[in-house]
């Protein structure tokens, strides 16, 4: 039997999490490089419908891994159910998106099989028959190529946006779907999850903004937010922030951009004193243009900036605000 790659896609309440397509694209790329076959699995109480949706992609097979215990999601049930399935199918490599849910159970799953997870990868390389995964370290200041030092199955997770979901290839015909039931013992599940909810109605919808001025910890103090606000006002822009600014209560939560905040794609995103951690960048890298002001020339935000200003934002922003006002007044 050829070596197999297994992509475990993610679903919530019967809907596929869109990042699942990205992981399938990643799987297809690794399959193309290695010559290994590619399969996918959907786990849940009734995964059959989703499995046939996934089966439209270029895959050798799709498994609908089912048990009533898999819903609502708990790490105990997912680790146990997937362990049973994976131990039986013996894929070489198991891929998942690096979502909050996967972070919650995959280290447990891998540990229960005596294996490791290379987590939060952004790419892979296959060089002289060796598969390495690229991941960020030191908050994006470095990338690392990491290899497995164990027997299969190998586990790897991919960061949001590392591959393009819309590039997942369709198959010539639908892949066969196989239903697999897993047994999860009654007393195994210890957590009792309640309904998922959203904290508060959002007052601002940053997704509609044409221009966003975003501040990060480089702003230093709450009172300095005013400097950014004046620029935003002059530009007719919405004010947004990185997470620590909202955590500190300097701006309300609904102005947070990133994986735990809003995902935005304005015509212009002006990042002031934001380092460019991956969790921030996934929320704004779809912006049509990015201007970054940061005093650290090595800040990861510059990797995705169209215009880079290396300097002190307190020197740069006030004259910029004045210049914008002048330009506007001048017509």
């Amino acid at each position: 039997m050829p070596e197999a790659i297994l992509v475990v896609v993610e679903q919530r309440e019967g809907k596929l999490n869109r990042v699942s397509w990205e992981t399938i694209t990643a799987g297809q790329a690794i399959a193309a490089a290695t010559g290994w076959t590619l399969e996918a699995a959907v786990a849940g109480a009734n995964p059959a419908t989703l499995a046939s949706e996934v089966a439209a992609k270029k895959l050798a097979k799709v498994y609908a891994v089912q048990s009533p215990k898999l819903e609502p999601y708990t790490p105990d049930a997912f680790a146990a159910g997937l362990k049973q399935f994976i131990a039986n199918k013996r894929p070489k490599l198991v891929l998942m998106p690096h979502t909050y849910q996967v972070r919650d159970f995959v280290p447990k799953l891998a540990n229960s099989m005596g294996r490791a997870v290379i987590s939060d990868c952004i790419g892979f390389k296959y060089e002289s028959s060796k598969l390495v995964f690229t991941r960020q370290m030191f908050q994006g200041k470095f990338a690392a190529d990491v290899s497995f030092n164990s027997d299969a199955p190998w586990f790897a997770t991919f960061q949001n946006g590392s591959f393009r979901g819309d590039k997942a290839e369709d198959g010539a015909s639908a892949a066969p779907v196989e239903a697999v039931s897993v047994e999860i013992a009654d007393n195994l599940i210890r957590n009792k999850p309640q309904e998922v909810f959203k904290e508060a109605k959002q007052a601002v919808d940053l997704t509609q903004a044409e221009v966003i001025v975003a501040v990060g910890r480089g702003i230093k103090e709450q009172k300095n937010i005013e400097i950014a606000k004046q620029l935003a006002d002059a530009l007719g822009a919405e004010l947004a922030a990185s997470r620590p600014i909202c955590d500190s209560g300097w701006l309300p939560m609904d102005r947070q951009v990133g994986s735990s905040g809003q995902t935005v794609a304005p015509k212009l995103y002006l990042a002031l004193g934001i380092s460019g951690a991956i969790q921030h960048m996934v929320g704004m890298k779809g912006s049509r243009a990015i201007i970054a002001v940061n005093k650290d020339a090595e800040a990861p935000i510059f990797e995705i900036a169209d215009y880079a200003v290396v300097g002190n934002l307190f020197d740069i922003v006030p004259p910029l605000t004045e210049e914008v006002k002048k330009a506007k007044a001048g017509g």
Binding site: I118, Q136, D145, E303, Y307, E323
Partner: peptide
């Protein structure tokens, strides 16, 4: 260790960035 860091490096840039330089004004 079951995973091994083969090498660490400064990430390659994916975008062409134009640097805006000079005094603030």
């Amino acid at each position: 260790n079951l995973q091994k860091i083969e090498r660490l490096y400064v990430p390659q840039k994916t975008k062409k960035t134009e640097h805006i330089e000079g005094p603030p004004a």
